[in-house]
């Protein structure tokens, strides 16, 4: 128990304070507190508690089934443009918020994906997700969507390359958490 508190020493106070705040808000009918819980928190919580366990199960299965050599060959250090396209494709078909990309990034890296491709994956994940594209086109138009994506792709490839080189030069690593 004590170790748990130590490990999450910033998180646990926030969670406890929020529980108390929400409880008091409901008790005294304090509207901002009720609104924060009902609309904002609940929306994120639902997404997190439904989507993420499934994602982590898929990550776990991927981990036990896919051999490192295969990943290394396709998106490893020597994979070139083909590797970049593959990680981008992987990112585009996924859904979920930015933080959902990090555990996948860890797994890819552990299985031999090159650092450049790991960072391209993260950026691609945030740029164009096919499930979200229908929303974007619906509300902002096809022209906007296409332009934004076409301009963003070279920018994030560049960021991916810079980050990847930095990562390699400094012998960085990605933690399992």
């Amino acid at each position: 128990m004590k170790a748990l508190f130590k490990k999450y020493k910033l998180d646990i106070p926030v969670i406890i304070a929020f529980v108390i705040f929400t409880g008091t808000s409901f008790y005294f009918q304090f509207n901002p507190g009720i609104q924060i819980f009902k609309t904002n928190f609940w929306m994120f919580f639902k997404e997190m508690i439904i989507l993420l366990p499934m994602m982590f199960i898929l990550i776990g299965l991927f981990d036990v089934w896919i051999p490192k050599e295969r990943i290394q060959k396709h998106i490893g250090d020597t994979s070139g443009i083909k590797g970049m396209l593959l990680v981008m494709l992987l990112a585009f078909i996924q859904a979920g918020p930015l933080y959902a990309a990090f555990p996948v990034a860890y797994l890819l890296w552990k299985k031999g994906c090159s650092p450049v491709n790991v960072f391209i994956y993260i950026s691609a994940f945030t740029t164009a997700k096919i499930p979200m594209l229908t929303f974007e086109i619906g509300f902002l138009g096809l022209k906007f969507s296409l332009l934004r994506i076409l301009i963003t792709i070279p920018v994030f490839i560049l960021i991916g390359i810079i980050m990847g080189k930095y990562f390699e030069r400094n012998n960085c690593k990605i933690n399992e958490v």
């Binding site: 999450y8 910033l10 998180d11 646990i12 926030v14 969670i15 929020f18 901002p32 609104q35 924060i36 819980f37 904002n40 928190f41 994120f44 919580f45 997190m48 993420l52 366990p53 982590f56 199960i57 898929l58 990550i59 776990g60 299965l61 991927f62 981990d63 036990v64 089934w65 933080y99 555990p103 399992e176 958490v177």
Partner: peptide
């Protein structure tokens, strides 16, 4: 595999929770 995945989820859960709490408040 499932055990491995869910274990990772539980480990990150407290941090996730505290982050979405802060986001909810900021969004307000």
């Amino acid at each position: 595999g499932i055990k491995k995945g869910l274990k990772q989820f539980l480990k990150i859960l407290p941090t996730l929770l505290s982050v979405i709490i802060i986001i909810s408040i900021v969004l307000f």
